[in-house]
């Protein structure tokens, strides 16, 4: 079997794992080898069964004993949180498995994101116009964060703030407040509406009950849902007074 050859090659390089491997029973070893061969991607239990062609109960037993010996660990795969994935203990889960820097144990790290957003907003507020590099350098120089942020991460944060309409993306014109940036550089600045505490502008349609109504498509003058009996309008008028 080609797999056993490749594992034997591994064995030669790492004598200590060699001895560990020796102490395992055959089934455990087969399972462990399959898991290890997947490196930082991990593997799903059913795939282990399929690749080792062992019956389910044997695989489960092996997994249990390997977990006890701390040779493998369970990891959460972002794409299929319900499925149990295993990985050899010495590997760190790859980006594809964890979902990238923003995920902690398979969940989106909203706290981290919000903290970073707040920081970026403060920086932009104080500097008026910034670039990704500017924010990154600022964070680095002042050691604001206890962890390392990549430029890529900062760019992602700023991008999501643009989508939130908190800041806007502009191209430097080289004039006025953009004088320190070469023409054409992508800069970020506060959106004028949000910056003045006005919040987002609410459109004409969105400010009446029909604009928010999830049932508008079923609403007819003589139907069960009709404007004359509409509860949303009643509530709306109560608030308006």
């Amino acid at each position: 079997m080609s797999r056993s050859i490749s594992t034997s090659a591994l064995k030669r390089k790492r004598p200590e794992s060699n001895s560990l491997n020796d102490s395992l029973v055959d089934a455990d070893r087969a399972v462990f080898n399959v898991i290890k061969s997947k490196e930082d991607m991990g593997i799903w239990t059913r795939d282990i069964k399929w690749e080792t062609s062992l019956p389910e109960n044997v695989v489960n037993k092996s997994l249990k004993s390997l977990l006890n010996k701390k040779l493998i660990k369970e990891v959460v795969n972002i794409k299929n949180k319900g499925r149990k994935h295993y990985m050899a203990a010495e590997f760190e889960p790859s980006k594809e498995v964890t979902g990238g820097a923003w995920y902690v144990e398979g969940n989106l790290d909203k706290e981290l994101i919000n903290v970073l957003k707040g920081l970026c907003l403060k920086i932009i507020n104080s500097q008026k116009v910034v670039t990704v590099d500017g924010v990154y350098d600022f964070l680095k120089k002042h050691k604001v964060t206890t962890f390392d942020c990549t430029k890529q991460q900062i760019a992602e944060i700023l991008n999501s703030m643009v989508l939130d309409n908190e800041i806007i993306e502009v191209k430097s014109t080289g004039l006025g407040e953009y004088h320190s940036f070469p023409i054409g550089t992508i800069c970020y600045r506060i959106a004028s509406g949000a910056g003045l505490g006005k919040g987002l502008k609410i459109g004409a349609m969105a400010s009446i009950p029909c604009g928010m109504c999830p049932r508008i498509s079923q609403c007819t003058p003589d139907g069960i849902i009709s404007p004359s009996t509409c509860m949303y309008y009643k509530k709306w008028l109560d608030i308006e007074f």
């Binding site: 999501s160 989508l163 939130d164 987002l200 502008k201 349609m205 969105a206 604009g211 109504c213």
Partner: peptide
Amino acid sequence: NEEVESIVLKRYGREAYRMFRFLSK
């Protein structure tokens, strides 16, 4: 765009707004 986005925000919430803006842009 502003008008439609504000409807999305009101009717479907903040996250939908962000996703909609991303797709629309």
